[in-house]
Design a protein around this nucleic acid. Sequence first.
DNA 1: TCGATATTCAAACTACTACTTGAATATCGG
DNA 2: CCGATATTCAAGTAGTAGTTTGAATATCGA
Lengths: 222, 222
Amino acid sequence: MGDRAAKDALFDAFAEVARALASGRRAEIVDVLAQGERSVEQIAAEIDQRVANTSHHLRAMARAGVLRTRREGTRIVYMLASERIGDMWAAMRDVAAEHVAGINELADAYVGDRSALEPVSRRELEARLKAGDVVVLDVRPAVEYAAGHIPGARSVPVSDLRRLRSLAKDTEIVAYCRGPYCVYADEAVRQLRRRGFAAKRLEDGYPEWKRAGLPIAVGAGQ
Amino acid sequence: MGDRAAKDALFDAFAEVARALASGRRAEIVDVLAQGERSVEQIAAEIDQRVANTSHHLRAMARAGVLRTRREGTRIVYMLASERIGDMWAAMRDVAAEHVAGINELADAYVGDRSALEPVSRRELEARLKAGDVVVLDVRPAVEYAAGHIPGARSVPVSDLRRLRSLAKDTEIVAYCRGPYCVYADEAVRQLRRRGFAAKRLEDGYPEWKRAGLPIAVGAGQ
DNA sequence: TCGATATTCAAACTACTACTTGAATATCGG
DNA sequence: CCGATATTCAAGTAGTAGTTTGAATATCGA
């Protein structure tokens, strides 16, 4: 007991969890799976990688314990092993946002200039939802809405946004999507503003809302 | 905006934070620094590594943003960049405890058999501290006690435990140390029991107590 | 300024990791 | 059982990480 070899082995095991997220592509995978389970092919498409390479990453992560699989007919569906993985990913992202030099420049390069988008905090959105003076749009793909969304939000994937007609010009709109580094809500807000609506984005996204213990709704509804 | 290269760069930056903890030795370093700042030499001693190698790890971690340094005369003192690093380490450890196959066997191999030690939860210790029917011992080195401890706890490093005299045989003792995988409290409980005391250990340690937002005290006192 | 102490650098070796390509395996619908 | 689809395996390459050794640098106290 207490010898160096045993201690090393224990901490190596802890480190394996970090190693499972210690590559940009694997971080992307966790970010995608935080929205819900996906097949290998879907994940490969989202992270812009070959299927074989994606499969390799997925298996490694599953071996490390952070992912689980389920068979669905001919395809294998991967998912986060538990919600605690999402907590860890959020902690990691927050640490990066706080401490990694240049992360803001990288974020800007990816999401573009956000200064005009006036992000709304969770707390503020919660209050305004209660007051009922805001229309909330979930601009993620419809399957993600169905897997869970903010109660009262309407599902309008960015791709369908043009078809949106039934909104008074004077109602204020808040759009949300996958998280702080997701561009769907940005795109939606820009488009809505061009059409004359008063639109803002939620500062983060659905997973953060859920993680904060705020009420959620599930199903295709609305 | 939104192109693959920018997205890859952003997520690579997130991954760098994970990479900073993706080795057993670096995980040990975070675990040590969660107790308070340390010089390179002290850290090297705690993780049983050469100073040069330790320095190498420390610099890499500082470059990634998870550590900060301070000069103190001839030595460089390293510390966690912020408490959020500790949160991330805790999330990582919890994920490992929940999902990594064989982690319990590795932990047993390191800390020995704990089944007889009857760990006490934070909640329970809090209640019993309020009721005043328990003696709490902080069995970490004295400097760590001084950097922060549970209010009302008495500082008795394991090495000094033999000298402890002034305790009635019928008072119940709860010992705590650095965390769930720290062996000081285990050793203390075993020793106290051999001497006829009713001793148990806190299930985790001081950092978890603090992270849970429970009251803490600072200073050499008592 | 000089010696002692603490830390970092440089070079070298070994081992591992990410990604690609092409083949192999498993399931489903007919 | 067969073909089509989805996923995984195997082998190879290029690049990166962990550790060791010995030298270099920086600060302090005299």
